[in-house]
Write a protein that binds this DNA or RNA. Structure first.
Length: 275
DNA sequence: AGCAGTACCTGGTTGC
DNA sequence: TGCAACCAGGTACTGC
């Protein structure tokens, strides 16, 4: 269930178990994910040492000298570090076995994805995978601010929520956080992107940063169990102000939260707090 | 160029 | 209880 904070939390969880380790073997039980898993994952990755684990947008990259494994969790993907004898579930499509090291027993990095909207691809050294080539800036860096949004909004006739979710404008703002950030900024998600002022975009960008950073912090505590997945808690759900709360009272003004479909996705907002 | 629509897939929930 | 319909946190691709 990955938006950017969950992907970043996953990265932080698995990175210490991977960095400096050598890939002992790759087991592919299914290769028909969002795209077929390319042969390089089987032929080039084994034997390589993982030098770094990076996140770009909602992609994770396992960097080695021979190239990088590029993972996306889609809607239902999950990555866990497990003992080699962990029982294999129906949707456990890929295991990347990690060689034993002086400080860690042998482990596997297991990719599980019931819906198979995720992917595992390969990026040769020194290249940028085509899927990454046209992505906008990372929301939590200085490359993204209100003017990023304001400039992108020129000449757009679609709604501000769709602009916020456009990966060419800014990456990592998924359906939940788009609604939440617009609520925090007091902007009606249906408002035409071109009709939002530069000042309000500054506020919106600040809220995107604040909410994503806060969720990553929360993810660090609520998702800590992905090494031994028992009792996964209620996530950040109890903290949401508008998402999934249609008909319920706004936490600020008690007005019922409304829901509308934009771009085939549900949007939630408070008609009193957002204009 | 921007935008709407379609597609990928399984599983949980809702409603008859 | 059974089963169909609907919904889900993502995103690339097509065609207008």
């Amino acid at each position: 269930m990955p938006e950017l904070p969950e992907v970043e939390t996953t990265r932080r969880g698995i990175a210490p178990c991977l960095i400096g380790k050598r890939v002992a073997a790759v087991t592919l039980r299914r290769t028909d994910l969002r795209w077929p898993i390319p042969v390089e994952v089987s032929t080039l990755l084994p034997g390589q040492r993982i030098d770094a684990v990076e996140r770009r947008a909602k992609y994770l990259l396992l960097h080695t000298a021979a190239g990088s494994a590029l993972l996306h969790l889609g809607m239902s993907g999950m990555l866990r570090v497990l003992p080699p004898d962990a029982p294999i579930g129906k949707h456990d499509h890929v295991d990347i076995a990690l060689a034993r090291s002086s400080t860690q027993a042998a482990r596997i990095l297991r990719f599980t994805d019931p819906r198979r909207f995720g992917c595992l691809l390969w990026q040769p050294p020194g290249e940028v995978h085509p899927l990454l080539a046209k992505l906008g800036p990372e929301p939590l860096t200085g490359d993204f601010d209100g003017d990023t949004l304001w400039l992108a909004s020129r000449g757009r006739r679609s709604a501000v929520k769709l602009l916020l979710m456009d990966n060419a404008v800014v990456v990592g703002v998924g359906n939940i956080y788009a609604s939440e950030a617009l609520f925090a900024a007091g902007i009606d998600p249906r408002r035409a992107a071109a009709a939002v002022s530069r000042a309000r975009y500054a506020r919106l960008a600040a809220e995107v940063k604040r909410i994503l950073a806060w969720a990553i912090e929360r993810g660090g505590t609520t998702l800590r169990d992905f090494l031994n997945p028992d009792g996964a808690p209620g996530y950040f759900f109890r903290e949401l102000n508008v998402y999934g709360r249609a008909g319920e009272a706004c936490r600020v003004c008690n007005t019922p939260i409304r829901q509308v479909v934009q771009g085939q996705r549900s949007t939630f907002w408070c008609p009193h707090c957002q204009h």
